[in-house]
Nucleic acid binder design. Sequence first.
DNA 1: GTCTATAGTATGATAGAC
DNA 2: GTCTATCATACTATAGAC
Lengths: 208, 208
Amino acid sequence: MPRTHKTTNSTRHRILTEAALLFRRHGYRGTSTRQIAEAVGIKQPSLFHHFANKQAILEELMAISLEESLAGAQRAAIAEGSAAQRLYDYVLWDLTTLHRLPFALSGIYAHDVLEDPALATWSAKLEALYAALRSLIEQGIRSGEFRPVNPDLAQAMVAGVTFSHIDYSAEHAGGDPVELGSEGAVFILSGLMRDPASLERLVAAARL
Amino acid sequence: MPRTHKTTNSTRHRILTEAALLFRRHGYRGTSTRQIAEAVGIKQPSLFHHFANKQAILEELMAISLEESLAGAQRAAIAEGSAAQRLYDYVLWDLTTLHRLPFALSGIYAHDVLEDPALATWSAKLEALYAALRSLIEQGIRSGEFRPVNPDLAQAMVAGVTFSHIDYSAEHAGGDPVELGSEGAVFILSGLMRDPASLERLVAAARL
DNA sequence: GTCTATAGTATGATAGAC
DNA sequence: GTCTATCATACTATAGAC
């Protein structure tokens, strides 16, 4: 989501950046509000002027990373045309976007934090994203484009590859987002398609 | 690792089982020793008669899940023959083993817990496993069996698929371990091979 | 091997001055 | 908008009786 920060280097923005970095390294629960404040260069209670509580920081990071992906997956799931092409286009766009984000989002989607009832909204959005992916995979199986895989497992593997890109991106700065995203999309589609040779056509017809 | 428990339903064993379940649901840091004790049916301080501290429980679970995988990957990386065949055999065996484990291992391999310097030994073992996988992938690229992918990213994606199987296994009981493992191995190899059509030969020649 | 009681520490969040 | 001071709570782990 294109945020509407008045100044991109506001304290609020710096809190988000530093918190994302720390959440990745030490996890949400393993990161204290004191650590975040220190990284930003303010004292711990000053955080609560910008965010109601620690969880609000996490929720804003989830919004940044999840809402666009969910909308894109749902659009792809109901669009017209080849399921393989729609999945390819979606994955390529999603991974490319992830590699472009200025935040280190790994560690935000751990089970333990999403299981918290207070984050049920976000857990539901992630589940909706998974449902859209599953639908896309099932469409591809019915049309004969994909092998007759277990749709639940296939969806989990697609998500697993996505998370691996989030991790990779956090550890290796400076790669070309489109190139990395493309490698992920090709990997996933090759893993699912009955005839991976025809993948070249998808790549050529892709629209970002 | 085949554990040497005198009785498989010893309190010690029950602590491991319940802790694994709770670590998966709430994460290592999100799980208190009180919760573990309550699940087992004893009081919190009684845990410390069986394990020196909370971390020792985690380390035993890591030993169970990681040591065999590491040894298998290192064997595969230096063995003779086709890199694709060795990767296929390893992934199939590893995933099948994972799906057979009586423990819910998800949530154990989160970054935040492995970053703790006290767990450096286990972090190093995981890194060694990744190095073996990377070597196997590089061998396949050199031999022309695999597409010229980014080895670091490819290794991350293979690990991502493995983690997705750990998660899937924790949420869907009762699937056939070999069938699930096979779907994972085919997915990964299809994603890497230059000529996925020849995958049938690997599947036929596989030795578990 | 399990219990009660408790020490020692870290955490998230609030109150109120400036 | 940031600070100091502090509260209330939760946690891991230990001591010592039974």
